[in-house]
Design a protein around this nucleic acid. Structure first.
Lengths: 242, 242
DNA sequence: CGCACTCTTGAAAGTTGTCAACTCTCGTGG
DNA sequence: CCACGAGAGTTGACAACTTTCAAGAGTGCG
C-alpha cells in the first residue's frame, strides 16, 4: 500500500460532485484499513451481520442471482471505487448476493455507520444517493442491452461500459485495461452461452475492434466499438467522457 | 367518478406502511382532479416542463426506450396506483420515456410539489422511497427474467407479476384481470418477437395455465404458473401475497 | 509435472426471428 | 344496419441465431 495510493472511492464521489477537504479526509480515514477477501468468496452474506454494505477498494466483484434452473444471472459488476448498498434509503431484502471475482480489498460498514456518515456529511450523503441513481440507470441500461440487442452488440456494449467506468477511476491505460472476467462470467452477464460469447469475442477481434488476451482488454477502435454497441455513456454521468 | 372510487395510490402506499389519517386525506386531495390523457400519448415528455413526475390514477402506461436499430424496449409497466419518478432523490436524466397504453387518468406534479409533500409528511416521503426501492427491485427482476429464462418461463413470470401487482390494488377479480397489453408490447417487454410471444401464449393456454381472450387474462392454475416461472413475489413487498 | 480452470473449435440440435398472408374484432361512417 | 378499415391475433415455411455436447489446446499455479 504505497503512500501515493489513490482512494478510488473518494475519486469516484469527487467525479460526481465537489467534496470539502474535511469530507475527503474522512473518506480517506474510512478506507484506510480494508479487509482482504479472496477470490470467489461471498462478499455480502459473509459479512451480512453488518448489513452487507461495502466499498470496494481494490479488485472486481459482481452481484448475481441464482435461478432454480441452476442458471446464474449477473446483475452488476463492482469495480474499484464502487460501493454496494450504501444508499441509506435502501432496505436490502437480500434477494441477491455479491461475490468477489478476484481477490479483493473492501471496507464493510454497518447501517449505523453509513447513517452517521450521511448525517454529518451532507455532500457525502448526496454522493451516495447519486451513486445509487447511477446504479439504477445502469441496471436499466443492462435490461435494454439484453432485451434489445443481439449478441455482438450486447458484448460490445458491456465492454464499452467497463471501459468508461474503469477509465473514470484511473484504471485504463492507453485504451487498455485489466478485465478479470471470464467468458463464463460474461455469458451469465449477457444471457448467452459461454460458447457463443467466445465466438462473439472472436468476431469483435476479427472486426479489429478489440484485442483480448488473458485478463487484458485493449480497445482498438473505440468510435467503431461504441457505434456498433449504440453506446451512449450519459447514464454513467461521467464528467469528462470520451 | 363514483364517490366509492378508491384512491389506488393511497391504497398502494398503505399496503407498504401505515399512514396517518391526515396523510391519507392529503393524498385524496392531491389525486382529486387528475388529467385525462388519451392512449398512445407520451405521458412524460408531454408534461416534462413539470419534471415528468406523475401518479397514475387509472389506466396502464409503460416506460420504454428506443434503440437506434428501431427496436423498442419496455423497461417497466405502470398500473393504477403506481407513480413515476416521485422519489425526490432522483434527478431524471430522461434517457427514457413514458407512454400511455390505454387512456389514462394521471396527476402530474412538479419537483417542488413533491418536495413539499415529502418535507411535511415523513410517512409519505418514506412511502415514496419504498416505492422507488420496489421499482428498482422489479427492474433487477426483469433483468434476471430476460437474461436467464427461456420464452415460456419469461412470459409466465411477467403474467405472475402483473397478477400480483394488480391484485394489490384491487384490480383482480376471481383470478381474472384486465390486461390491455398487446402481444407486440409483450414482445418488446420480453425481448422476443411478437410471433414468438403469440406461440408462447398458446403454449401456456395448451398447458391449461391461463386463458387470454381480448383484454382479459385469467389465471387458471396459479401454483403451476408460478412454479413454471420460478416466481417469488418477495421483491414486490406485498403484505398479503398468495 | 500435473491438475484445475479457461479458451477454442466442430457438428448437430433447439430456440427464436422473419416474412407473408390470412382471420378476427371492433369502432366508424355510409 | 351493414361495409369498411385499422389494429390485433394467428399460422406456416423458412432462415438466422444461439445452445448443447464433446473434445482438445492453452495457461498458470502448487
Amino acid at each position: 500500500m504505497p503512500a501515493s495510493k489513490v482512494n478510488r472511492f473518494r475519486r469516484r464521489l469527487e467525479s460526481l460532485l465537489p467534496l470539502s477537504m474535511a469530507d475527503g479526509d474522512l473518506l480517506d480515514r474510512v478506507l484506510a484499513d480494508p479487509d482482504l477477501v479472496p477470490a470467489r468468496a461471498d462478499l455480502v452474506s459473509r459479512h451480512d451481520r453488518k448489513g452487507g454494505r461495502l466499498i470496494l477498494v481494490d479488485g472486481f466483484a459482481y452481484q448475481y442471482r441464482m435461478l432454480t434452473s441452476g442458471r446464474r444471472q449477473i446483475t452488476a459488476y463492482l469495480v474499484p471505487g464502487d460501493s454496494y448498498d450504501l444508499d441509506a434509503a435502501r432496505e436490502n431484502g437480500s434477494d441477491h448476493a455479491v461475490m468477489a471475482l478476484t481477490s479483493v480489498r473492501s471496507v464493510h460498514l454497518t447501517t449505523a455507520e453509513v447513517a452517521v456518515l450521511s448525517l454529518d456529511h451532507p455532500s457525502i450523503a448526496e454522493g451516495l444517493r447519486l451513486v445509487g441513481r447511477i446504479e439504477e440507470a445502469t441496471l436499466r441500461e443492462w435490461l435494454v442491452n439484453i432485451g434489445g440487442r443481439p449478441a455482438l452488440e450486447r458484448i460490445a456494449h458491456l465492454f464499452c461500459e467497463l471501459d468508461r467506468r474503469l477509465h473514470a477511476v484511473g484504471l485504463v491505460d492507453q485504451d487498455r485495461f485489466e478485465m478479470p472476467i471470464t467468458q463464463y462470467d460474461l455469458a451469465d452477464t449477457a444471457g448467452l452461452s459461454s460458447v457463443h460469447v467466445n465466438r462473439t469475442i472472436q468476431e469483435l477481434r476479427r472486426q479489429g475492434l478489440i484485442a483480448l488476451t488473458g485478463r487484458s482488454l485493449t480497445i482498438l477502435d473505440r468510435p467503431s466499438l461504441q457505434a456498433l454497441a449504440d453506446f451512449q455513456p450519459r447514464y454513467l454521468r461521467l464528467r469528462a467522457s470520451a
